[in-house]
Design a protein around this nucleic acid. Sequence first.
RNA 1: GCCCGCCUGGCGGAAUGGUAGACGCAGCGGACUUAAAAUCCGCAGCCGUGAUGGCAUGGGGGUUCGACUCCCCCGGCGGGCACCA
Length: 881
Amino acid sequence: MNPMAESITEALPLAADAPRYNFRAAEPRWQRAWAERSCFRVADVPTDGRPKYYVLEMFPYPSGKIHMGHVRNYTLGDVVARYKRARGYAVMHPMGWDAFGLPAENAARERGIHPAKWTRENIATMRAELQRMGLSLEWEREFATCDPEYYGHQQKLFLDFLRAGLVERKESWVNWDPVDGTVLANEQVIDGRGWRSGALVEKKQLNQWFLKITDYAQELLDALDTLDRWPERVRLMQAKWIGRSEGARLDFGLEQPVDGIGQVEVYTTRPDTLFGMSFLALAPEHPLSAAVAANDPKAAAFIAECRRLGTSEAVIETAEKQGYDTGLRVGHPFLKDTTFPVWIANFVLMEYGTGAIFGCPAHDQRDIDFARKYGLSVVPVVLPPGADPATFNVGTEAYVGPGTIFNSGFLDGLDVPAAKRAVIAELERLGVGHGEVNWRLRDWGVSRQRYWGSPIPVIHCDSCGVVPVPDDQLPVKLPDDVTFDRPGNPLDHHPTWKHVACPRCGAPARRETDTFDTFVDSSWYFARFCSPLADVPVRREATDHWMPVDQYIGGIEHAILHLLYSRFFTRAMKQTGHLDVDEPFAGLFTQGMVTHESYRSAPGVNGTWLYPEEVEKQPDGTATHRTTGEPVTIGRVEAMSKSKRNTVDPEAIIARYGADTARWFILSDNPPERDMEWTEAGVAGAFRFTQRVYRLAEGVGEAGPARPVDFGEAARALRRTTHRTIAAVSEALDSFAFNVAVARLYELANASADAERRDDTGGLGLARREAVEMLARLVSPMMPHLAEEMYARLYPQATHLVAELPWPQAEPELLAADSVTIAVQVMGKLRATISVPPDAPADTVIAAAETEANVARLLAGKRVVKRIHVPNRIVNFVIAG
RNA sequence: GCCCGCCUGGCGGAAUGGUAGACGCAGCGGACUUAAAAUCCGCAGCCGUGAUGGCAUGGGGGUUCGACUCCCCCGGCGGGCACCA
């Protein structure tokens, strides 16, 4: 299976006599030491007075093995956790498993493994892998969302939400796979067909449970402004997703009522263009469309055609605008003697606004496309600045810019915003409409027709209706004895599970067999971590102390759904008294992906994909197959994916180079928010650095008795480098600039190595010992095992671990230099550098600069009109001419 | 189409408006070695006679004593959203 397995024990070549850091022995030893000393334990409700810091990485789905994306995510989080701990914070850094979901059911269907067994085995494997990474996790808080204790509390939250009016059961249009007998998410509909079954997907109305996230739409939007430690683009994406729009809702009266329907309600953001109306269009699912279709087979056929196309985005994108003229006509609120045709149009969405629009082709691109196709009238009513009202016309492109209203009765002469206000006022006065805010955000449908999820804790009774499961009967546990031998929901097929007595009247009733969307599970796990053993969903004292998460870290792919759902859930939990915070994540960091070159076994795109381990790179930049020797095409560098086989197994890397090397490389390559390229050469370089740093520790002398030393020039220089590195690394870690921290540590290592080659005079040996100790401690958030190993060498009698040490402090007097180099410019171009004492007065510095031969030459005979002096940095002479 | 981001050596990247290219990877030269690896030392943006010479941060303009950094225009790349009325 894994081509790299054979090479796991093969070590990088090293000289036999080279001192060697044996990570295979050291890493497990220090992992045990941290665990035995409970270095990473904190209390649910601490009393030690340290400030709290909650570091959380998005918990993994137990898919089988960890991948490089996990390694990057958890390494980033671990650096923050270890650094903040050293900085004096009580750090909570938990880990758990997002354990429900479809892959487990697929495994059951395809391989006959029970989803619970499959999931538990994957968790065991992946937990061991994470532990080998040396992460400073508090494993005592671990849970999986498939634990009945967890989802039972989730069911309790749902019932509390239900009682608080935050839950609704309603009919909604869904993508229905008639073969699998299940609802599909939009992403699971490919070219109108189910992604698994290949069956044509139908649009179907189904009773679904909804969480009323739209109740919080305004708040979720407004509070984005308070999330100043979130990436701007995530906030923008959420704002767009919530999609607030301001407009008007108004009624259009039908000339002839149809099936009792006398008017059509329309939502518009452009009430100012009402006089430019030329048609009204209904969504195919609109009740009036259905009423028309009842007596008009052609209309029915048109609607059926629209429905067949489904709701998938890909289909909507490519579909041409199509309409059907119903023959009906509507009046206009302001144009008393005019009527307009009513169409059914495929581009009108039932889910947004009222499912009906008025068409103003001159000022809306979709409407003009539609009007030009079907020969409908086009009346411009917004005159662009400078245009001539007598000749201004609209061709195939709608005018959507600002301007002055014309052709519009009482609105003529107003600008667009004023006209909007005037129309709304008039509609309200006439009682046919009003101003309204509309949202793109929809309520959150949480029902899934699946087994491997949390049961939704309600019971359906023929006489009592929907009855919540009483709190004392929670959790509603999943039955173990289920079969996956036929399509549909195994809970529904189960012979006994769903048959229960109604808790209210005792009559035979049925359990809800839908389970929760797994996004529900991940919407509050961060709160549960604060008190993972509590017999309530969350213990208030614990969440009051630990929430919000101070630093949340994960992939940008969760920018909208998971983060928005969690923000909503936090508010809902606050409303129901479970929490007392508004926002779950005070700080958010979104990491880039891990990428790798891809390889194909033959030229062009015809070859099969090859794993990196199957490929041998040649010195000339080409590549061949490791066993067959045939040429290999090197493809693009792209995100690691199983389908492209451009993956590298973290387990193999850790086995071959050690966890610290993997961690170091993944941090050093580039800034963490960008995509990084995983390369063999890069890992090897990181490995060499671990060895080099360790040798430095072996090369320093014993810790002598503390004594005042009159440091010589070289020792003073090294000490300044050491202390500047402390300051620089601290600053870099504070700002997530881990690649810069790495660079500064290379410099310190280089400086220590330089010192090693010089005579130990003037206290250089002591300065070197200090440099190496600080190197160990500064490197510890990133390479914790190596740091412990080095420290143990430096202090064989030490009674504490680096993981328990406070962060080193730079000595301020060592941050100041003996002298500074000043750049001397003439007319902004560098002409010389001079060395002067720090903070030398301006006239001294300028005088010194002027005497530099090269500067004097350029200034000779010229009139200097300005002398710029920036202390400790630069002198610039501006000459006339 | 709309929105956002990015563009610096062969590569990843560094740089409070103040000496552009730190640090690493790859490369080249040398030491050590029978040899290779490893290790160590050194070189290294481009042009150029070895000048503290010139040109250089996608292209063009601007602000400034001074611009990778701020502003405007253009180009390229990447990402997100999208019949949202």
